[in-house]
């Protein structure tokens, strides 16, 4: 299990991380969310030992992370980086060997991964000759080469087309099912909601929300009402107290209400206002939870 415990990091006067804590268990995928500049990349770099924390500790299986432990981690940084003039297959073998693989194993694994990622016909191509999407896949292959126990992926879905997103999602799910701990950051919150049971939301260096996605949604003090109402008066929403109109398109209304409000009251108002066709009462989705938590922390 990866454990980040009370990590603080300053760059001059800027507090990049302030008492940040999170855990990722083996076989689990943790979504690491936050606005730009929140401290996600700094946290990941500290986990990988690229920078030292000013305070706090990072451990793997309850032991401080040393160089040998880091060799069992796979990393995909936000800014993709591979040797532009090195052939793809050689690149994978090189990085695999840097993580301690024997030459023969590295060659075999590189060949297998390139087939899995549909890159086998580009194995001799230099990285600079690959398309953006294929460079993304190559970068992922580098992170997967040595069958890591922990995968740390910084914005792995950025710039991928839907097919690439599906392929990467499948790979991460498959790795997690074999016991790999996966920590990844993303701004594509619908994707995170689909892939992760657990998320950590960070803002301005501090963790502002953490837990199971369903719990976080249910614990929100707000609920969304989706209503389809025909032959209604245009101002029917303004007449309701404690209800905010979030979106309106044709007969479809999306309303934000306090979770203390009685559903039956709203339904009754809606029926008085027009002909009610649809009515749903749901907790906010992850992106709304994210916005709420970030807003609250500011």
């Amino acid at each position: 299990m990866l454990s980040v415990d009370g990590v603080t990091k300053k760059f001059g006067e800027l507090v990049a991380l302030d008492d940040c804590s999170l855990t990722v268990e083996r076989g689990k995928i943790l979504g690491f969310l936050g606005p730009n500049g929140a401290g996600k990349t700094t946290t990941m770099r500290i986990i990988l030992g690229l920078i030292d924390p000013d305070a706090g500790a990072v451990s793997w299986d309850d032991r401080p992370i040393d160089a040998a432990a880091r060799l069992r981690f796979g990393y995909m940084p936000e800014e993709r980086g591979l040797y532009p003039r090195m052939p793809l297959h050689d690149q994978l073998v090189y990085h695999g060997r840097l993580h301690g693989m024997a030459k023969d194993s590295a060659i075999a694994e590189a060949t297998r991964l390139l087939e899995m990622l549909s890159l086998e016909d580009r194995s001799a191509a230099k990285i600079e000759e690959l398309s953006h999407g294929n460079q993304q896949r190559a970068q992922l292959a580098v992170a997967l080469m040595h069958d890591p126990e922990l995968l740390v992926l910084d914005e792995p879905f950025a710039g991928l087309d839907p097919i690439g997103v599906d392929a990467l999602s499948d790979v991460l799910a498959e790795r997690a099912s074999t016991g790999t701990a996966v920590l990844f950051s993303s701004h594509q919150l619908d994707l995170v909601e689909d892939m992760c049971r657990q998320v950590v939301i960070i803002n301005e260096g501090s963790v502002v929300l953490a837990g199971e996605v369903d719990d976080l949604r249910q614990s929100s003090p707000r609920r969304y009402l989706d209503v389809v109402l025909e032959q209604c008066r245009p101002d029917w929403v303004q007449r309701l107290e404690g209800v905010d109109l979030v979106a309106h398109s044709g007969n479809r209304f999306r309303l934000l209400v306090d979770d203390q409000m009685r559903v039956s009251d709203v339904a009754a108002w809606a029926e008085q206002a027009g002909s009610l066709r649809e009515f749903s009462f749901t907790p906010p989705d992850l992106s709304e939870v994210f916005r709420e938590s970030v807003r609250r922390s500011q």
Binding site: L50, Y75, E79, P84, H95, L98, Q139
Partner: peptide
Amino acid sequence: AGRVAEVVLSAVT
């Protein structure tokens, strides 16, 4: 500049 250092430094000091 090519950002490859970050990947390499995750494996070597």
